[in-house]
Design a binder for these strands. Structure first.
Lengths: 343, 343
DNA sequence: CTCGTTGCCGGGAACGTTTGCGTTGATGTA
DNA sequence: TACATCAACGCAAACGTTCCCGGCAACGAG
């Protein structure tokens, strides 16, 4: 037996009141063509029957879905989940809903996700690029289809779109400068693959800080750690086992912090006596690590909010804009014991 | 000038080949009524024009959306983002997409979210209850509407639905027993408000462990911390400042760990010499905290996977099931220095 | 009295897709 | 020859909604 209540439509209201569907539709939208009395009757019945408009029918007709698509490399990390929360915050307030996909750092998966979202007729796309992505045709395609696009964090400068990033350059610059001022001069950099925009900016920040203090930038101390965890561990271990070990490491990605600390502890090295560290991290728990981790904090929630604001602005202005902007939000350096002054 | 490529439909293919839309539709779905030659022609043109079926039109007709709605209290925490990742993992493989909402622990917001998702014609709903929620009419409503429902983590036993939970009782029991065996006998419990299912189970685990070792269960040492952070700090501080301070705290919620550690450090107490702690946490960084935190680990990703499997099973069996199941996944105790044996 | 105006409402197409049923021409059978 | 059969395709309704295009009274102006 199927006791499921049928979902009530405009037609049901029309039947109940012996009106036409068009009249009911107009009454619900407060059209001037409908007299007050009828409007009130319609709204009364609509409320009584618990009528809710069917957004799918609307989407089909209006060719818009009130849905914003979001693609991130992984949901389950601090940066992503916080930006998603920021996106959802703004989207919800403006009547949009959020469809979330993961690229798992794979180009093919990212491309497939974009196509799926486009075929879902999303009103706009917010994306942070996968590590693997080098070709951007799937993005230019969506632009050609006149679907608004906003990139955040891992962006691509050759694409014409709004971008929301944090000041990765200064984040790294300040972090490295801090290490230098604390007396550490042999500073290694552990970072993600070079093709990511954030990697490049942070690398430049590192280099410029070193140069400003006339310290040599040594290629062998710039490690582009792969995405794979085991490989990451090995590369970090290798540099720590080398003859002329650095006296500090600047860690340019949240994910690498825990790996780095793990390796250092396994090797029996002390932080910061044997090796000082500082790194990008949005984990609020960094002050309670052993030792407390000096970290570059990014305004992750704000990044999401800003991206959502931009995409909604584009959507509601029919994707017309005079100029594409790159919004850059400031980072903050949280100084803790892991970079304590060298004796 | 609007140079946006129109999105190609079945009609475009039909026109190009001078066929009817129904023939094209059937050809694309490999109907036996269409001769091979026509099928190949149609598919060729479809590929050339980059045809992608419009799921919105399908949803309208078939009254299903291939979308699973998910409501969590907050996206931006370890438990939620990991379960969401698990849900997305399974959903993606089965051709479903995931629409995510946050209740922000508010009943009204949760209710509103449910209605929004229902009006979106989601095929199924996965939910973890808000802290505030005491009335479940919004859930029984969706059940009456024949929309499949799966609850996870914070469930409600009076609702007829599949549930996926972790073994909160034994998680707490084992954690507390561990503290006892390490020599701590005056153990306080800090936990969330009592109306949550997880709180009740963990509280029972705490009580039973204490009773097993003939230790008194003192009401003033069972603290139901409010959701608000400042209040949480105050309640924790109060118990630590009392004359007969406990010698250990079992922390029954991830969110409370960092608050607890913060207060303890601010008061100048040592862990575990002055007070030992152990708590629920899915943060992989717990071994690197100062001191390393003994923690109950939950299989968050698996919870999400299981919830998604169940909801899809319900969806594809037209929401018919012989019996509603409660799947309980095991927790694991990760023993670290914060509960080191008492001297 | 006639005609234009206005207020209120209904009919029906359209959005993209599927599907039951009808149609057509060709072939086979009695 | 007449009729059934069958392959291959077209027509049209339906999903829920909006909106253009009418229609039809009532009413005022001439």
């Amino acid at each position: 037996m199927d006791n499921s209540q049928r979902i009530v439509t405009i037609k049901d209201i029309a039947q109940e009141l012996k009106l036409s569907v068009s009249t009911v539709s107009r009454a619900l939208r407060d059209s001037a063509e409908i007299k007050l009395e009828t409007k009130m009757l319609v709204k009364e019945v609509a409320a009584r029957l618990h009528y809710t408009p069917n957004p799918i029918a609307l989407s089909l007709k209006e060719k818009r879905s009130k849905i914003i698509g979001v693609i991130v490399p992984e949901i389950a990390n601090n940066f992503s989940s916080n930006t998603i929360a920021g996106i959802e915050d703004i989207a919800y307030k403006k009547g949009y809903h959020v469809l979330i996909f993961q690229s798992h750092e794979k180009y093919e998966r990212e491309k497939e996700n974009v196509q799926l979202l486009v075929s879902r007729r999303i009103d706009g796309l917010i994306i942070s690029l996968a590590n693997e992505t080098q070709c951007y045709d799937h993005l230019t395609d969506t632009i050609d289809k006149n679907i608004p696009l906003v990139m955040f964090d891992r962006v691509c400068h050759s694409i014409n779109a709004h971008k929301v990033i944090t000041n990765d350059y200064f984040g790294a610059y300040n972090g490295v400068e801090h290490l230098i001022q604390q007396g550490y001069h042999n500073i290694a950099l552990i970072t993600l693959p070079l093709n990511l925009s954030i990697t490049q900016n942070r690398l430049n920040g590192y280099k410029d800080a070193m140069k400003k203090y006339n310290l040599p930038v040594r290629d062998e101390w710039i490690i582009h750690s792969p995405i794979d965890v085991v490989c990451s561990e090995m590369t970090i271990r290798r540099i720590l086992e080398s003859d002329n070990r650095p006296d500090a490491i600047f860690i340019s990605a949240e994910r690498l912090n825990i790996i780095c600390i793990k390796v250092i502890k396994e090797m029996g090295l002390r932080i910061p006596e044997d090796i000082a560290i500082a790194g990008f991290s949005d984990n609020p728990i960094t002050p309670y690590l052993a030792p407390a981790l000096t970290s570059v904090k990014q305004p992750t929630f704000n990044v999401g909010q800003k991206a959502a604001e931009l995409i909604i602005e584009l959507i509601e202005n029919n994707n017309t804009t005079t100029q594409y902007r790159t919004i850059q939000l400031d980072t903050a350096l949280d100084i803790q014991a892991s970079s304590r002054r060298r004796q």
